[in-house]
Each structure stands twice: as C-alpha cells, then as structure tokens.
Deep mutational scan, measured.
Amino acid sequence: VFVDDHLLEKVLELNAKGEKRLIKTWSRRSTIVPEMVGHTIAVYNGKQHVPVYITENMVGHKLGEFAP
C-alpha cells in the first residue's frame, strides 16, 4: 500500500496529539489507511483543495477518487 511519507507523518502526528484539523495535500495517489479515519483531508483536484472527510468505508481507496 502506498502513502506519501509527508502525509502519513502529518496524520500520525495529529493522532498522537489527539487533534483533528484540516490537512492539505497534493498527493491524490496516496491510499487511504485506517490511521486517517476521522480526519478531514483537503485533496487538490488541479484547481482547488476539496475537503474530504475520511470514513471507514474509504480505507483501501485512493484520495484522488474522492476529489473529482
């Protein structure tokens, strides 16, 4: 499973602090992992960042699938 390192670091850091804030990313190719559930990730679609709230059903899919 591929997840960009910088994105995973941000998610794990927020989980350690117990925070839930918006994470901006250009990494549409990253796979959604269970650690991301409950976070809102702003995924770049080529024009703007689209906020995507991550749920359990999204695990295993790519971030780009949810930012048309």
Results as ranks from 00 to 15, higher is better:
30 S>R: 02
51 P>I: 11
49 H>W: 12
49 H>S: 04
47 K>Q: 09
48 Q>T: 14
64 G>R: 09
63 L>P: 00
42 A>W: 03
9 E>G: 11
41 I>C: 02
25 T>C: 03
17 K>E: 06
3 V>E: 04
7 L>A: 01
2 F>I: 05
29 R>N: 12
25 T>E: 00
67 A>W: 02
25 T>I: 01
54 I>E: 00
58 M>D: 12
13 E>A: 10
3 V>C: 06
23 I>F: 03
45 N>L: 06
42 A>S: 09
36 M>C: 04
21 R>L: 14
14 L>Y: 08
4 D>G: 03
11 V>C: 05
56 E>N: 15
58 M>N: 10
15 N>T: 04
23 I>W: 01
1 V>C: 14
60 G>Q: 10
46 G>W: 11
55 T>F: 11
25 T>Y: 01
54 I>P: 03
11 V>P: 00
35 E>K: 04
12 L>A: 08
44 Y>N: 04
26 W>N: 15
23 I>K: 01
5 D>Q: 15
57 N>C: 11
16 A>I: 08
21 R>T: 12
5 D>C: 15
42 A>Q: 04
55 T>V: 13
59 V>Y: 15
36 M>R: 00
22 L>S: 05
10 K>L: 15
30 S>W: 02
21 R>F: 11
7 L>N: 01
45 N>D: 13
62 K>M: 11
14 L>S: 04
1 V>I: 14
34 P>Y: 13
3 V>R: 01
12 L>R: 15
64 G>Q: 11
12 L>E: 06
25 T>F: 01
46 G>A: 10
55 T>H: 15
24 K>V: 14
60 G>P: 02
53 Y>A: 10
24 K>I: 13
20 K>M: 06
15 N>S: 03
13 E>K: 08
66 F>I: 08
48 Q>K: 11
67 A>T: 06
48 Q>S: 12
37 V>G: 05
58 M>Q: 12
9 E>C: 15
41 I>W: 01
52 V>P: 00
3 V>T: 06
35 E>Y: 06
44 Y>D: 04
61 H>M: 14
67 A>V: 07
59 V>E: 09
30 S>L: 03
10 K>T: 15
67 A>L: 06
66 F>K: 05
64 G>S: 09
12 L>I: 12
34 P>L: 11
50 V>C: 10
68 P>R: 08
20 K>G: 01
28 R>I: 05
40 T>P: 01
2 F>W: 15
32 I>A: 05
21 R>K: 14
37 V>D: 05
25 T>M: 00
37 V>Q: 10
57 N>Y: 10
39 H>D: 00
33 V>E: 02
13 E>D: 07
37 V>Y: 10
23 I>P: 01
67 A>G: 07
10 K>W: 09
3 V>H: 04
32 I>K: 00
40 T>H: 08
38 G>H: 09
5 D>S: 15
13 E>C: 10
2 F>L: 05
13 E>N: 10
41 I>H: 00
31 T>R: 06
66 F>M: 09
10 K>Q: 15
58 M>V: 09
63 L>T: 06
29 R>Q: 13
12 L>K: 14
46 G>V: 05
35 E>F: 08
32 I>G: 00
59 V>A: 09
11 V>Y: 01
26 W>A: 11
59 V>M: 10
7 L>M: 03
43 V>D: 00
22 L>Y: 06
33 V>M: 08
68 P>G: 07
7 L>P: 01
60 G>W: 15
60 G>Y: 15
64 G>V: 06
15 N>E: 03
59 V>R: 10
60 G>E: 08
56 E>F: 13
43 V>I: 09
8 L>D: 01
54 I>S: 00
47 K>C: 12
64 G>A: 10
24 K>Q: 07
1 V>M: 09
21 R>Q: 14
66 F>A: 05
27 S>C: 11
58 M>H: 15
29 R>A: 12
24 K>C: 13
62 K>Y: 07
61 H>R: 12
14 L>K: 01
43 V>Q: 01
55 T>I: 13
29 R>K: 14
10 K>P: 01
62 K>I: 12
59 V>S: 08
29 R>H: 13
28 R>G: 06
55 T>A: 11
67 A>K: 04
57 N>W: 12
